Amino acid sequence: MKKLVAGVDRLLAIVGGVALIAGGIIALAWHYDAPWARETLSRFDRARIAELPDQGWWVPALAVCAGVSVVVALLLLVGNFSPRTTGTASVIEVPHFSAHVDLSAIASGVAAELADFPGVRRARGTAIDDRGMPTIAVSVYAAADFDVVAFTALADARAAFVAESLSGAYVATRIQLHVDKRK
C-alpha cells in the first residue's frame, strides 16, 4: 500500500471513529439525563431543523454531498486496489554509472526455489512497493504434513542470499507461508 493512501485511510478511520464515539457519548448522556447533554440539545430549534428538507438549497446540497462522497469513495478504491508492483532496484549509484536489477525476476527465482521443497504445492513471487519500500513478496502454499522448521531455515537462507546479493539496495524480502488445514 502506498504511504499517501495508507495515511488517508487511517485519517478517515480516525475521524469517523471519533465522530461515532462522540455521537454515542452524547446519545448516552441524553438518554441518562445528563444535565449538560439536555441543555446542549435543548438549544436546537426542532421546528427549524424539521423544515430543512423543504428548503430550496437542500436537494442541490444533498446531490453535491452525494457526488463528492462517490468520487472520494472511487478514489479510495482505486488507491487501495491499484497494483503495487515495482520494477527495478538500484544496486550501484555512482556518478555516470548505475546498475539496476529486475526485482520481479528475483522474486520468481526465489519462488521457484521454494516450490521445490517437499510438501510445497505452489509458490508465487512478485515484486511490490510496500509503503515506499521495494519488497520481494513470495507466497508459499503447502500441505498440512509439511516440515515447517526445515522450510523456515531454507526461507531464511534465501532471504539472506537476496539481501547479500542486493547489498547496495534497500529491498525487503517477505515470505508468507500458507499451510493447509488438517482434516
Score class of each variant (00 low, 15 high):
residue 29 A to P: 02
residue 101 V to R: 13
residue 53 P to I: 10
residue 177 L to T: 09
residue 148 V to R: 00
residue 183 K to W: 05
residue 140 V to Y: 01
residue 86 T to K: 12
residue 122 R to L: 07
residue 6 A to D: 06
residue 182 R to C: 06
residue 92 I to S: 10
residue 171 V to T: 09
residue 13 A to H: 03
residue 8 V to L: 13
residue 34 A to R: 03
residue 43 R to T: 05
residue 60 P to N: 11
residue 122 R to A: 14
residue 51 E to S: 12
residue 103 L to K: 10
residue 42 S to R: 13
residue 166 L to S: 08
residue 19 A to E: 10
residue 129 D to G: 09
residue 144 A to F: 01
residue 157 A to F: 00
residue 60 P to Y: 06
residue 165 S to H: 10
residue 163 A to V: 05
residue 13 A to W: 05
residue 159 A to Q: 06
residue 171 V to P: 04
residue 172 A to F: 04
residue 34 A to L: 13
residue 160 A to W: 00
residue 8 V to N: 03
residue 3 K to Y: 06
residue 137 A to K: 06
residue 39 E to H: 07
residue 26 I to E: 09
residue 119 G to T: 02
residue 135 T to G: 01
residue 7 G to I: 08
residue 161 F to E: 07
residue 27 A to E: 10
residue 69 S to I: 06
residue 106 I to Y: 03
residue 41 L to N: 07
residue 11 L to C: 11
residue 52 L to M: 13
residue 124 R to W: 11
residue 96 H to Q: 11
residue 138 V to D: 00
residue 5 V to L: 08
residue 182 R to M: 11
residue 80 N to F: 01
residue 15 V to E: 11
residue 26 I to D: 06
residue 139 S to K: 04
residue 152 T to V: 02
residue 92 I to A: 13
residue 84 R to G: 15
residue 46 R to H: 05
residue 37 A to G: 14
residue 37 A to V: 10
residue 38 R to V: 14
residue 139 S to T: 01
residue 116 D to F: 08
residue 159 A to T: 11
residue 123 A to P: 00
residue 27 A to Q: 08
residue 62 L to K: 00
residue 182 R to K: 15
residue 78 V to Y: 09
residue 178 H to W: 11
residue 136 I to C: 04
residue 160 A to D: 04
residue 127 A to C: 07
residue 167 S to N: 10
residue 11 L to F: 11
residue 181 K to A: 15
residue 73 A to S: 14
residue 105 A to T: 13
residue 49 I to C: 07
residue 86 T to Q: 07
residue 17 G to M: 11
residue 155 A to L: 01
residue 115 A to Q: 12
residue 7 G to D: 09
residue 14 I to H: 14
residue 164 E to T: 01
residue 76 L to A: 07
residue 168 G to K: 10
residue 73 A to C: 13
residue 17 G to T: 14
residue 131 R to M: 04
residue 112 A to M: 14
residue 118 P to V: 00
residue 170 Y to S: 12
residue 35 P to C: 13
residue 37 A to S: 14
residue 56 G to R: 06
residue 108 S to C: 05
residue 45 D to R: 05
residue 42 S to A: 15
residue 97 F to N: 08
residue 54 D to I: 04
residue 17 G to W: 09
residue 163 A to D: 09
residue 75 L to P: 03
residue 78 V to T: 10
residue 138 V to G: 02
residue 50 A to M: 09
residue 44 F to V: 15
residue 11 L to V: 08
residue 137 A to R: 08
residue 25 I to C: 12
residue 129 D to R: 12
residue 174 R to D: 08
residue 15 V to Y: 14
residue 163 A to K: 05
residue 151 F to L: 02
residue 183 K to P: 11
residue 144 A to P: 00
residue 8 V to E: 02
residue 130 D to N: 11
residue 139 S to P: 00
residue 5 V to W: 06
residue 102 D to I: 09
residue 55 Q to T: 15
residue 4 L to V: 14
residue 174 R to P: 03
residue 146 F to I: 02
residue 83 P to W: 12
residue 174 R to L: 13
residue 140 V to G: 01
residue 178 H to D: 12
residue 84 R to I: 12
residue 65 C to T: 11
residue 88 T to S: 14
residue 112 A to E: 15
residue 130 D to E: 12
residue 9 D to H: 06
residue 163 A to T: 10
residue 54 D to Y: 07
residue 55 Q to V: 06
residue 94 V to Y: 02
residue 47 A to T: 02
residue 76 L to M: 15
residue 149 V to Q: 04
residue 11 L to E: 08
residue 131 R to D: 05
residue 42 S to K: 13
residue 101 V to I: 15
